[in-house]
Amino acid sequence: MKNPTYENLPQILADYIDSLIKGVGGNRQVRLEVAEEIGHHFVDAMGESAGDEDKEELARELMENFGDIKMLGKLIKRGKKRCRPLWQKVLLQSLYTLCGLIVFIILYGVWFLMGRPTLSIDYLARLNEMTRPAAAAGENAWPDYEKAIELYVAPDEIDKGRGFTEEGELPDKRRLNQIVARTAGREDYVLYGELGSEEQTAITEWIDRNEEAWAHYAEASRKAYCYREYTMGDEEGHPMLLEVLLPHLSEIRDMARLGVWRSEKQTHEGKDQEAVETCLTLIRAGLHWHCNKGILIEQLVGQAIIRLGLEQMLVMVAKDELSSEEMARVQQELAAIFKDGFPHMT
């Protein structure tokens, strides 16, 4: 490294300084500063040496006294680092940390992708354990719900007798599924009395053919709890809880719609007490599927059934179908059903 300071030094000292600053590292500016400092030190130490031989001998003595090149390089490098400004130290440390983090993420990603999961917890058993109540087995509503599902007659079966086929539609008729799947607040929300005679007949047939199924549904709603053990289609091939089988929810929801139209028909016929009891059955059944369930979709279905029962009651109240005594009784029934407060999502 060329430096004006070297002009007054023997070549062996210049070479010594060059070797020394190589161990210092850092950028070019740092090495130049170190070389200049050491060069001035040697120039002062050389003084006014007479001849070249005296300079050579003094230079060797200075080199010997100055110390080991490698050790000096490390010490000077350490000292230069300590003299860096604070902002530079913070910046460098941040860069080192970032680089280390990137390397760690890469190595962890490689390890993660090359690894194989080892399932040590049976989450299906844990789920069943969490939802299994401590009450007596005789108070379990699931056997009655299961029987109701088995006996349930779907609207499609009624439509077959109305002339519908799986492939086509009829220009002057609506499928029963379209009629019963009404939603509050939408244009398709109609009351039983507002339907045509043919559609009323279809709904009546649907209700009548499900009398036995509804009896089991109502009996189930009066039980203390509903516990159904969760299962999977193939535990070896589907170890995730997303694969838990819930084939019953569709029929449970459809039977809730059956209850709504059953209550609607009872109200139309002036059977207000029976209509109220049907709504209470829906609310109690909804609680079974909402509370103490480990799967979110079950809770959502349960909440929807509760809403259907409450909405149907509001329809009756809006039409002044209930007397003050009947409304007081309904209030007491609802207070007993929701004794722990209105259920929320868990």
Rank of each mutant, 00 (worst) to 15 (best):
M1A: 06
N3P: 01
N3V: 07
L9P: 03
R31K: 15
L32N: 11
V43C: 10
E48C: 13
S49H: 02
D54M: 14
R60N: 15
E61A: 12
M63K: 09
D68L: 01
I69S: 08
K70A: 07
G73W: 08
K74N: 09
L75R: 10
K77L: 09
R84L: 15
L86I: 10
L86V: 14
W87E: 15
L91R: 04
G100V: 04
L101P: 00
I102D: 00
M114P: 00
P117D: 12
P117Q: 13
T131H: 05
R132K: 14
W142P: 02
A148G: 08
A148L: 10
A148K: 08
E150L: 10
Y152K: 08
I158T: 05
R162L: 13
T165Y: 09
G168S: 15
P171H: 02
D172S: 12
L176I: 11
Y189Q: 14
Y192K: 00
G196E: 15
A202V: 06
I203S: 05
T204G: 14
W206H: 05
R209V: 07
A213N: 11
H216R: 14
A218E: 15
R222N: 03
K223P: 10
A224W: 05
R228S: 03
D234C: 08
E235D: 10
G237Q: 15
M240F: 07
E243C: 09
L246K: 12
P247T: 09
E251I: 00
R257H: 03
V260N: 08
E264S: 15
E264H: 08
T278H: 01
L280S: 07
L280T: 01
L280D: 09
R284C: 06
A285M: 09
G286R: 00
G286L: 07
Q299D: 03
L308D: 11
E311Q: 13
D320I: 01
L322V: 10
S323T: 15
A328W: 05
A328I: 02
R329N: 03
A336S: 12
K339L: 03
D340A: 04
G341E: 05
P343Y: 03
